[in-house]
């Protein structure tokens, strides 16, 4: 039975031999040329192939890496395929994301990409239920709903470690990202979501220091909520003021997104 399964997979791979498989052959070269930790350019190339390759991408997502590849090459390809699938927002990829996310032994980036894929498909509830996982936090921001913002805000109140708090803060920035919202066809939850994110980010700014505070300030600029100034004022009035709130107010008031 197992052998039969393998045959089916192999037949599947063969059946979808095409541009994705062709690109797969170039992964070692892309890896050799990379500037950072992982080879970029694979995802945009996969996307440039168009939606017609989605079935092939789905098959490719299950293929094991070539054993001759380096660790970074294998990871770059695996994540690039998942991210390309995520960008297409095609429901046929949902099982792929679910399967990859279920594999908690997978590299963090794989789990994050899978979570992001589900987020883009709108599976917020599934992800909110797994917010205890850092990879899910890192990927959930693309599910731009008020519920996600609330859930992230709630997590921030649970005394997270600084590392996890930073992830939560960044996710709040992603879910409330002003420019991302502006591209969405349905924006009914935009204001509530961005406000929720901003309120939580101001609280995080006051509550944490160091990298978390710095990240919260930056994400506030990205969320660019019209209520941020009011949230800062509330923080002051509530006795939560820290000297840096003045600096934060000035940065927010400069509105770098909208300058």
């Amino acid at each position: 039975m197992k052998a039969l399964g393998m045959m089916v997979v192999l037949v599947s791979f063969a059946a979808f031999a095409g541009p994705v498989s062709d690109l797969r052959q170039s992964v070692p070269q892309a890896d050799a040329k990379k500037r950072g930790p992982l080879a970029a350019g694979l995802k945009p190339t996969l996307l440039a192939m168009g939606e017609g390759v989605i079935p092939e991408l789905i098959v490719e997502a299950s293929r094991p890496a070539d054993p001759s590849w380096s660790e970074s090459a294998a990871l770059a390809w695996r994540v690039s395929v998942l991210e390309a699938l995520g960008t297409h927002k095609d429901a046929r990829a949902r099982p792929v994301f679910q399967r990859q996310l279920a594999d908690t032994s997978a590299p963090f980036m794989v789990q994050r990409a899978a979570a992001e894929g589900l987020a883009k498909l709108g599976d917020a509830d599934v992800l909110i239920a797994q917010l205890d996982r850092d990879a899910v936090v890192a990927g959930i921001g693309s599910a731009r709903t008020h519920a996600v913002a609330r859930a992230l805000a709630l997590e921030l109140t649970k005394q997270p470690s600084p590392a996890r708090a930073k992830l939560l803060v960044k996710a709040l920035g992603e879910v409330g990202n002003a420019w991302a919202w502006a591209t969405l066809p349905v924006r009914t939850e935009e204001l509530a979501t961005r406000n929720e994110a901003a309120k939580s980010l101001v609280a995080a700014y006051v509550k944490f220091d160091g990298e978390v505070r710095n990240a919260a300030a930056t994400q506030l600029l990205i969320v660019d909520s019209p209520s941020t100034a009011a949230f800062i004022a509330q923080a002051r009035a509530g006795g939560l003021a820290v000297p840096e709130l003045d600096a934060l107010s000035q940065r927010v008031a400069s509105k770098p997104l909208g300058r």
Binding site: S142, G173, E174, N177, A178, W179, A180, A182, T183, N214, A217, T218, Q219, L220, L221, I222, D224, R251, S254, P256, L257
Partner: peptide, 13 residues
Amino acid sequence: MAASAEAVGEVNA
């Protein structure tokens, strides 16, 4: 657009 907004905030920092 999302990545670009993030870049604005991060470069501002």
